[in-house]
Design a protein around this nucleic acid. Structure first.
Lengths: 219, 219, 219, 219
DNA sequence: GATGAATGAGCCTTCATTCAT
DNA sequence: AATGAATGAAGGCTCATTCAT
């Protein structure tokens, strides 16, 4: 997904100096990771440079020594997160068993919602505000990738291996249901007792719904 | 859902004058509706009083004559939206046909995502930021209501009318998939061609998935 | 010189609301006058909004309530000063006596250097920095006006009423010598004893030089 | 003009290490020359250490290794430029022909405005802002020098060799007219067509005016 | 000598809120 | 009831200067 980076609006406004020293790379990394936590919690507008600097254990001025602006930090965080975030989608194998492939994807997405909820929230915030930064990426790189996956799924449907649903909406469902546990964790936490089995329960229920649906077989 | 109001954090900090004249009520209404549009688009921090006042065709000072603070407006918007937002959930009939009842609910939610996407985004924003205002409501009023519905669904499952899934996660599934079209519309817009059939396609795919799942019956 | 205004770079970026109340006009006036003092003393970069606000007996935020930005204030000051500054040039009468007309102009300029040295310094600062804001004005409106005056002077020369000099450079000389007493007053103050007769001395010396030169008539 | 240095405010605040190695002297020279360009273009406040360091092909930290502060650099630039700047004034010979001597001086000044406009602008900036740094120099060293020259001119006048003008204002006249072409070059550039003959035209016009004035001899 | 890294102070601007009319 | 006027408290960013290597 290296190409993805280029489709982020105004990406890389001088924030990836090629001749970066060790300490530079390290501090940039620290900043980006701190910023991910802050941005994912408060969104772009809601986050302040001071917050990020605090989270990175650094003065504001020093943070802005490494990044030209708050926006530059944000863009870097988006880039940094994006490739990781899209990883599972790239791994769907057209020649594998449909159910296996789809389930592997769904499980991977759910696992990421558990392990990297900040990434999910970062994008949720960005898209909720109209995707001002990654809009172009969405309609170019992601679009291409997604169309490709949809074709594969459509093939499977055409071959009778899957029930007839819109591949696109199937993807939306998978995204929605899996990301829900990251994006709305504040809500699920309040509505659930067994927090420790939350993701396991989600997984088994999702599996049933995804492949068998609610209605029992009338034999 | 009158009870709901009381569970919103610091609700009613002087924003419900008991002796409200006609014009007062009317202006409060105008403000709340304008604020819904603004807050749902930009989130709490991202919205400014000036924006809301503009949208309400009113001076900032006048707006703050009707509401004590930006937060008071926000709380009112949440309250105002909440009851409407929960409407479909209240209407589930325990004695009806499970599939009918669930589908009616899902369809109602999807319809609301189409007709009132602002409400959905408002809550999405709020919950993404950790539900600072409606946290208490979530774990009290909504929790009670949801537990009740889950019990009904569990009954249906116990009676063999539905496949065995976690009722709670089924609800999450319905919420996630339906709200997705409101909350992530910026994304779906970039990834979809047929914008006009988007919700119809979503509905039919959701129906198939929800009740039959992906796997075809092996006869 | 109303047209002059339009040639100032980005002039009037929302700083001349047509529907200005009395207090607005008054405060804008106060700000512009205060800003003239500050800008003429420290230049654009060297002046701060705080300084101007102080000089205008006003909080920074209030100043920025009347003008959108520091630059908007600066532009307004330039506009406000420009027409007054150019006044004498417009009054040169082609049909008058050459010496009278030229001397009236030079005297007027010198008088302005005495009465409004801030205006002179404001433009001196602006031009020293490369005329970033009024460059366009200089090469359009002022250019036209100046070319016109030069033609008149050239006519006088052609008619044998004046010795042969470049009209353009004559104008430069008049500008230079008269404005010198405003722009370099810090210097003249240190080099002169009779401060009170400074401008009178300047005037008589200038008159002699301008019309008779240094060399005595060899009879 | 070595004495001049001492009259610059706070001159030499640690900026003239007595035991300066070759490389030290060389780098100081580079910095001062770079700083002259920057300061003359943007003034003291408008110039940044980073700009100067850039122009000197040097890191900010290194620049401040050679000079204790931005102000120290500025003072050094003033000193460095001052002696050169005053050179022509020293060369006026009391025993020469008045017209020759004065014209030689005026020509030299005009030539410097052409060849070293930065120096002129540097002082123009400094004096415009009230001569905070060279004020003392102006009223001591320069004052003495100038008074001396004025006496010479006054002698010439008393001897009937020159028309009666104030020697002081004659000097101001020469300064103003010649420096104008350096200080206000941004303006003259916009108002002149023949840029290449600009200084030649200025020279001949100045000569005529200075010695013969505008009025033709009425024979 | 030289420079990357770091920062406190300050600058321009925004914003929620208050005041006066 | 309504609004223009006013402001303290941030927020993003710059800059001269210092520190450490």
């Amino acid at each position: 997904m290296t190409k993805a980076k280029s489709a982020i609006k105004n990406a890389d406004p001088g924030n990836t100096k090629p001749s970066a020293t060790r300490i530079q790379k390290q501090n940039r990394q620290i900043i980006v990771e701190a910023a991910l936590l802050v941005f994912s919690d408060y969104g772009y507008r809601g986050s302040t440079v001071a917050q990020i600097a605090d989270a990175a254990n650094m003065s504001k001025a020093n943070l802005l020594y490494y990044f030209d602006s708050k926006q530059a930090v944000y863009l870097s965080v988006l880039e940094y997160t994006l490739s990781e975030w899209l990883q599972p989608l790239s791994e769907m194998n057209p020649d594998g068993d449909p159910a296996d492939e789809i389930w592997r994807y769904a499980k991977a997405k759910l696992a990421m919602s558990k392990s990297k909820p900040e990434a999910s929230r970062l994008f949720a915030n960005e898209i909720l505000q109209g995707a001002p930064m990654i809009g172009e990426f969405l309609q170019t790189d992601l679009r291409v990738l997604l169309d490709d996956r949809c074709k594969v799924i459509q093939q499977w449907i055409d071959q009778g291996k899957l029930n007839s649903v819109s591949p696109l909406h199937l993807m939306f469902f998978i995204w929605a249901t899996t990301q829900h546990y990251a994006d709305f964790s504040a809500q699920t936490a309040f509505l659930t007792d067994n927090t420790d089995t939350l993701f396991d329960d989600a997984e088994s229920s999702l599996k049933t719904l995804l492949f068998n649906g609610l209605l029992p077989l009338k034999s």
